[in-house]
Design a protein around this nucleic acid. Sequence first.
DNA 1: CTGTTAGCGCATTCAG
DNA 2: CTGAATGCGCTAACAG
Lengths: 337, 337
Amino acid sequence: MIKQIKGVTISQVAEAAGVARSSVSRAFTRPDMLSPETVTRILNAAKALGYVPNHTARALSTGRYGNIALTVPDIANPFFPPLIQASQMEADRSDFCIFLGNGSEDPVQEDKLLKRFAGQVEGFVLASSRLSDAQIREHASQHPLVLINRDVEGIARVLIDSGTGVWQAVEHLARLGHRKIVYVSGPSTSWSNQQRSAAVRDASEKFNLTAQTVATIVPSFEAGKNAVDAILKTGASAAIAFDDLTAQGVLAGMAERHVIVPKDFSLIGCDDVLGAMTYPALTSVSNQSSEAGRVAVSLLMEILQAGTIRDVRHTLETHLVIRDTMTNIPAEFALVD
Amino acid sequence: MIKQIKGVTISQVAEAAGVARSSVSRAFTRPDMLSPETVTRILNAAKALGYVPNHTARALSTGRYGNIALTVPDIANPFFPPLIQASQMEADRSDFCIFLGNGSEDPVQEDKLLKRFAGQVEGFVLASSRLSDAQIREHASQHPLVLINRDVEGIARVLIDSGTGVWQAVEHLARLGHRKIVYVSGPSTSWSNQQRSAAVRDASEKFNLTAQTVATIVPSFEAGKNAVDAILKTGASAAIAFDDLTAQGVLAGMAERHVIVPKDFSLIGCDDVLGAMTYPALTSVSNQSSEAGRVAVSLLMEILQAGTIRDVRHTLETHLVIRDTMTNIPAEFALVD
DNA sequence: CTGTTAGCGCATTCAG
DNA sequence: CTGAATGCGCTAACAG
């Protein structure tokens, strides 16, 4: 049994402070049970020796690991870093650590990660999980689990309802006089894509414009760029893209074809992860991804504390962030309402 | 003592299979020490009960946690996600899990995270650590530790030498006929910035062009945009920016002022995190961040296995990735060499 | 090949 | 208020 580095233990502190091991333990977990002076004596001895409580040993004894796991399908997708960051900050408030898992858009990998994490975490947060409902239910039956952007009945979940923001986007386009728009879709199995697609359809109907769909398989810059010909062929005057990455691709593709945005064509993204970092600055539907991470972890903490699984369904509204990629079109085409 | 979920233990499996606990343990860790038939008997019993080895308990006994910690100063900085992803893939090869820590650009927070991770990880990888050399040494004395983009004598480190790529950038500009360039600097304390700044200076001297510096405090899109006036005032015909984010800001600022890149002005970024996602596509110095993550973890694994701390200094070369933001300037200004 | 024994570091009864 | 004893789940000698 080779220890990498033998950390200083509770026993050494106990000896140094001339007390029992249990007192050292209490000094860190229940200082109120000890006389103030012995507490300080122990704490001093601990600091002198550089003692740090061993979380693993504590976990074994208490059954509380102080860790949670967070999985995302693709950390390189700019949607997730803010979510991860916010999750960590929230976890930190309860002194929890986060295991991060990158599912690589692969259900098998994601499942493997969860199994590997089990036994050292108290609960899971799965963001945009690629697992099947059945798999999710299976894991949820073993540990407290909160979903982000995945709607499984009976399991705590926080959903970013892009519908509200997309509706606003369509409405705004209608007011600007557009009559024919296209939705550049994302993965058909994605919950978010279904939301957005439906919102485009419903709002278009309501505001009396026609909406077509140009499909992409994977949301990416390349996919957006490749979709441009199809988009232009529809004769639409504006497009709403599944996400900002795709929109950025569309933007580049348009520029290559000397179609000036917004003069010749209007464009709206989703997720608002690019901020004003494009030129022209991309109008987009805000996504609240960090809020989603925060809420999810906070929910998980509640569940852990209460010890009961709650069937919560927390939805986060979105809204349109207007920047520079839209323009109105000639009055003769304007919407009559 | 409330267990969240009482997992099935080795003892229950032992009883079910009619063997000793140690045999169950061996069935999972050293099956070769048992007769094939008892192994299958145990494995069957285990599966029937849904037994999963408890990693925490195992860690306590062996001192091998099977986890490592990775800290980054800001996960939202596009430099890091690829690094994190590659680190995870490499860790996964050795069946290690990763604790992710986001230092929030704050040494205090970073230090706190490391202390919190200690006791459940076997080693650390610190990417672009904001800690002082002394603090790093302190932690390195307690646990195996590998640095990324931080050069501390005696501690294993992998360094992305942007010097080579920046040198190429300057050389390329010189060949295109530029005589006067500007370096849009990053944080003065950053190791990377020092590398890049020095490379611009040295290469400029070598290729006989004059280089000025326009300083920004924090590398960001905004900073780049705000630097544009100062850049133009220098009368330079090209700029090299500290990173792609800054370069993208410069690009947007130029566009706003109707300075056409690359026709009127040439621009080069660093890190190459934007790919071809700008328009025009940004020429940049590749950064190899994922390779850095991979190598760092692999190094850490080596150290863990060997049980000895090695003073490795692994440097990764960079190179110029030429895209569309550069142009040559009139022959009368061309470099004579 | 397999059972017995003894901890890993800590929290927590139970006695003082 | 504090010390002694017990066990968390598992691995690792040490015997057979």
